[in-house]
Computed example of a mutant assay.
Amino acid sequence: MQILIPHAFSHIKLPNGISATIFDGDVDELPPNLDEIEIYVPSYMGGDGIYNAIDKMPRLKWLQLLTAGIDRALPFMREGVTLCNAKGVHDDATAELTIALILTRLRGIDATIRAKNQGWSTRKTRPSIFGAKVTIIGAGSIGRRIATLITAFGGLPTLVSKGGHNDTIAFNVCEEVVRNSDIVVVVVPLTSETKGLIDANFLAMMPNNSLLINVARGEVVVTADLYKEVSSGRISAGIDVTDPEPLDPSHPLWECENVVITPHVGGATKSFYIKATELLEDNLARISRGETPKNVIEGSY
């Protein structure tokens, strides 16, 4: 069985019966033996072209992503190919960035950086995570990790899921919670249902001086609606993802001093390679034994 894998993971231990073809992650440099590939691991955060290659792999059986989100891969899926995502790999890193974005806004770190040598002019009493009511839209493994860290800081998290179950509330009945939130964190997958989920109506429910954090996908938030709210100064935001992405340097969101924007780096830490290696080696071992690998995507996502 042949696997096509990015050079960054050429070090992984392969089980008996699986051999690797290594590529540098660039779709313009794909190897000539694509017709032999049965397992494909697209490069992390590569362009859409990394999925176009699937059409050239007639024997493909397994598509193992290095991302938690599957939205970019779905249009290229076909009958007979099993899709696995990287659930669990990015939980800690994305939760860390969420806390960083929250603290940057709440504690005025962004204002202090802008003030440079006049930093003392920004010294004042500011909000804290401690005691803050934090609504987390998305109750998957990343959302739950964020909730754990919020709790560690003394915050009060509420998890919101699609239908509401166990310790979560349903999105369609979360209005009261949102209206009483100090912070709203968005961490849902991008689907036809969640595209544009955070629109003018949702943002209008958020209280004055509240904070929106988006570590999901840019398309989940309607950019024009977000800009209208933050430019008025009514709410602020910390966003790791944008729509479009990357955000044009001339976009007015860059000029909003109450908005912190990072360049989609939620999972981009050194720990990614350690955790992704563990997942790849585990799943390849399972496949070689004829077992079902972890994180198989079934039904609606």
Rank of each mutant, 00 (worst) to 15 (best):
V187I: 15
D248K: 06
P42H: 02
I169G: 02
N209E: 14
D248Q: 07
G196P: 03
P31L: 01
L65Q: 06
V134I: 15
K124F: 00
K228M: 05
A237P: 09
P58C: 11
E96L: 08
T104A: 15
L279D: 00
R114V: 14
E193W: 07
I54K: 01
A95E: 12
F23I: 00
N201Y: 05
R78I: 14
V160I: 14
P157E: 14
G290I: 11
A132Y: 10
W62T: 14
V41N: 11
G108L: 13
I287D: 12
L280Y: 00
P75L: 12
L280Q: 06
V27A: 10
N295S: 06
L197Y: 08
G196D: 11
A139G: 07
D282L: 01
S10V: 08
G47V: 04
L226G: 02
H7E: 14
I22C: 13
D110P: 04
D55N: 14
V296Q: 11
D248E: 10
S121D: 09
H90V: 15
T168I: 09
D225F: 11
A86K: 07
I169F: 01
P293K: 07
P58M: 05
T98Y: 01
E79M: 13
G154R: 14
P246S: 08
N166I: 05
S161G: 01
P263S: 06
E245R: 04
